[in-house]
Design a binder for these strands. Structure first.
Length: 573
DNA sequence: GCCGTTTTCGGCCCGACTGTTTTCAGTCG
């Protein structure tokens, strides 16, 4: 998948153009737009080029003849000559340097020209020798800001999982509400869009006393540092290391503010263009005809006045949702209430923290109609995997509890069964047949070659016993990359053998993610949104998986655990 | 460089905050 690299190259071209060719602003924007499109595509751009050539590339939003040619060049030679030329002129690591908060292309160039700074290491040295404050146009404060920016870069490697960011954002919103100074405090940005990883938090606040809110926020215990503070907007760094933008707006602008602040950027640009076409202007303060406010208090109304259906925040990525909304043809995607059960739950029979019955009681309390127990199979020693004897006891326990809680919830018998290195399963068939369904996952031998891994996983599905493939890519956010496999081949096999792909809601996994879901859906696969709970509190994590599923535009019928228990059992049979 | 239900030429989303300035460029979202 070269999409990411190509997006990087086009972004770097745009950055380097900004240094001395800022007048070509629209050309620069064109490169950025193309980069954004390419980066957010689920389809492999090399495949597009190989199957449909330049014409295929030009179908991509923001890609015309010029950029399509450059993609072709990259596909054939591995290089883009325009980029190589720019790199000769500006031989410093522009992408690294501008990743520091406060440094943009112009500042990066100044640093290179005056101090010879080419890399982050050079930058660190320049900072420690206090060379930056002496430069013309920069000063003491800029140097300090850069020093802090470098600090933050070192502390935060990558983005935060949605599963950690959302509760944190909720906590901050609650603090703001509890201050009594705000009418509303609403989470916006990529957190509201339920993106699997979050760069920073955005919170929209309505208040009659913006200055008091600013003061309150800057004094919260959670606020480690105030990065910027104006009349309506404050940026803080929280003690968790994540940045948080808080914007205060009047009640009458709440809807347009939320629309604007939720994004995504690409979605907003598209919506604003529609506004212009229809003779309006749209900004965070409202939808205006001339200077007259037409809509602003409700988000729904803003869209409606533009002739658009309201779109779920999870869909706002400019992946075709605006066009469908204009025609009233948005798909009806999964809602939290559609999920009836959870098919990946551990207990203290293996590596879970709690007794089976406690998990059952909590699942009932959360309104689940069924719960599938999936304690680990024997070879997972590290996770206290069950042997045959223990499985029998586990199985009896499930039967007993099923009787006890009959009519309130149904317990399903399963096991998270290891997919061994050769693609076979970790239980013999006689045990597998005792289960209501089989959840199979890879836990070991993650370093295999792509071909071996692909074959291993496909083989595990071929024997017809597997119903769900658990956390298919095995990634751990910020800790472990996805395993090396041919996603399309695995997804195709899952479609062929009727194996549902898991959307694992555990904050550290969120696997599959939205892009993989979109890809898998092309092969007609079904999905299961599970929590992989190891304690009672984990059962609530289902909302992250649902968010990810919504981002993949999944409908209730795509998800097996939205079916009533009898239909689900039929499916497993 | 891209794009078209006003256009194949002439437009291109919109605004906040900071720092080093004396009116604005750079950065960010």
């Amino acid at each position: 998948m070269e999409n990411k690299r190509l997006a990087e190259i086009f972004n770097a071209i745009a950055d380097m153009m900004e240094i001395e060719e800022e007048k070509r602003i629209f050309e620069i924007k064109a490169y950025r737009k193309a980069a954004l499109s390419i980066e957010s595509m689920s389809e492999d751009i090399s495949h597009i080029y190989k199957s449909s050539g330049i014409e295929g590339l030009m179908e991509i939003d923001g890609v015309g003849t010029g950029i399509a040619k450059k993609i072709k060049e990259y596909e054939e030679t591995g290089k883009v000559s325009k980029y190589e030329e720019y790199k000769k002129r500006f031989p410093f690591d522009i992408l690294a340097l501008i990743s520091v908060q406060g440094i943009g292309p112009k500042t990066a160039y100044l640093l290179y020209k005056n101090l010879g700074v080419k890399t982050l290491d050079d930058l660190k040295k320049a900072v420690s020798k206090h060379k930056i404050q002496k430069m013309e146009g920069l000063g003491e404060k800029t140097e300090k800001k850069i020093a802090e920016g470098l600090n933050v870069l070192e502390r935060i490697s990558g983005r935060m999982s949605l599963g950690f960011a959302l509760p944190y954002a909720e906590h901050i919103s609650k603090l703001i509400m509890d201050s009594g100074l705000a009418g509303k405090a609403c989470i916006a940005g990529s957190t509201r869009r339920m993106k699997d990883t979050i760069g920073d938090l955005d919170i929209l606040v309505t208040s009659e006393h913006p200055e008091k809110i600013m003061e309150f926020i800057s004094k919260m215990d959670e606020t480690e540092e105030v990065i910027a503070r104006g009349d309506t907007k404050i940026t803080i760094r929280l003690d968790s290391g994540i940045n948080c933008d808080i914007r205060v707006i009047e009640k009458t602008s709440f809807g347009s503010g939320l629309q604007y602040f939720t994004g995504s950027k690409a979605h907003n640009i598209k919506v604003r263009k529609i506004a212009i076409k229809k003779g309006y202007k749209l900004n965070e303060y409202g939808l205006f005809k001339g200077s007259k406010l037409v809509a602003g208090e409700n988000e729904d109304e803003v869209y409606q006045k533009l002739g658009l259906e309201w779109m779920e925040p999870e869909m706002r990525e400019d992946r075709g949702e605006v066009e469908l909304a204009a025609e009233n043809k948005l798909p009806k995607i999964i809602q939290e209430k559609d999920i009836l059960g959870d098919l990946h739950v551990h207990t203290n029979y293996s590596d879970g923290n709690e007794k089976m019955e406690d998990m059952v009681i909590e699942a009932i309390r959360l309104g689940r109609r069924y719960i599938g127990f999936t304690d680990h199979s024997e070879s997972e020693h590290i996770a206290n995997g069950m042997d045959r004897k223990k499985f029998e006891k586990y199985s009896e326990d499930i039967d007993k509890l099923n009787d006890k809680y009959k009519g309130r919830i149904t317990l399903l018998k399963s096991s998270e069964t290891d997919i061994l290195a050769d693609g076979s399963l970790d239980w013999d068939n006689d045990i597998l047949e005792e289960m209501d369904y089989v959840l199979a996952s890879v836990h070991t031998g993650l370093g295999m070659s792509k071909d071996e891994m692909t074959e291993r996983i496909i083989r595990s599905m071929e024997n017809g016993e597997v119903d769900i493939l658990g956390h298919p890519t095995d990634r751990l956010i910020n800790r472990r990359p996805p395993i090396n496999m041919d996603l399309e081949m695995v997804f195709e096999a899952a479609g062929k053998y009727d194996v549902a792909l898991e959307i694992n809601s555990s904050p550290e996994r969120l696997d599959l993610n939205d892009e993989n879901i979109i890809l898998a859906k092309r092969f007609g696969t079904k999905f299961a949104i599970n929590t992989d709970s190891h304690m009672k509190s984990h059962l609530k994590s289902i909302r992250y998986g649902i968010g990810i599923a919504k981002r993949g535009w999944l409908r209730a019928e795509d998800i097996i655990n939205s079916r009533p228990i009898d239909k689900l059992k039929n499916l497993f049979r």
